[in-house]
Amino acid sequence: MLQVLANGLVNGAVLALIAISLTIIFSILRVPHFGLGGVFVWGAFVAFVAAEHGVPFGLAVLAAAVAMALVGVLIERLAFRSLRAATEEAMFVSAIGVLIAMENAALLVGGGETRSVPVPESLRFVVSFGGLVYLPAMRVLICAVTALAFAALILFVRTTRTGKAMRAVAQDRVAARLLGIPIDRIASWTFAIGSGLAGLAGALVGAAFTFNFEMGSLSILKAFVVVVLGGLGSVAGALVGGLVLGVVDSLTLTYVTSEYKQLVAFGLLILVLVLRPTGLFGQRSARADATAS
């Protein structure tokens, strides 16, 4: 039981990391960036290629995050910049296009097999938590990195000038622009941070578990479930939602059903959305938005 919970928390930490990246981009720019699923896959792939070529593990993971941050900036330019005044639906369609294109580009370049990013010997031990729960070091590392990324992000948004500008854009884009905040540059920063985190998540998952080119879509959809549970726009909500869903998933898998494992998560999503159409803790009412525009 405790072991199941611990495994669930690890999965939850991964989900939370992706959900946080989704949340940053959505809350600041209102872009539902499902293309992050593709970024996630490519993050794992870049780390894999780098590590295979003898790059030290930590550096390979870092390279994946940096590369994906750059790719994220490029994606914003190509697929979302000219849609800034468009509806969320239009941006969603563009994002789905990005997701499909990136996943299949990865499939073309890397082939269909399931791989794992090589982990150095020094990280291949199992951590015992009081003899009750055992976790491989890589999985503990994932939790640590998620916590660190969360803290760093909060610090960045609260204390830096760019972070302050991001919050301003999130609150009121027009007012922010009138005050001289360069929206385009903030958008690039936002996509860089979000995509970098997604790439980081991909690299870590690829190392702790395995990865293939189909995992992106499902991961990003799961991340969206998390975001809805946590309330769109709340980074802390994404963290809590991720951990909760990870545990729920793990419990379902062990005690209820292994065949219908998506049914629980997505059924939950539909239920939450139907009962609370803006998510569990969503502050902004979609209904109010619709009438205001």
Binding site: E88, E89, F92, V228, L273, P277, A286, D289
Partner: peptide, 14 residues
């Protein structure tokens, strides 16, 4: 009851 992106997501989940 849902709108916009949330509506699309419900259809995806379905």
């Amino acid at each position: 009851r849902t709108r916009g992106v949330y509506y699309i997501i419900v259809t995806v989940a379905f």
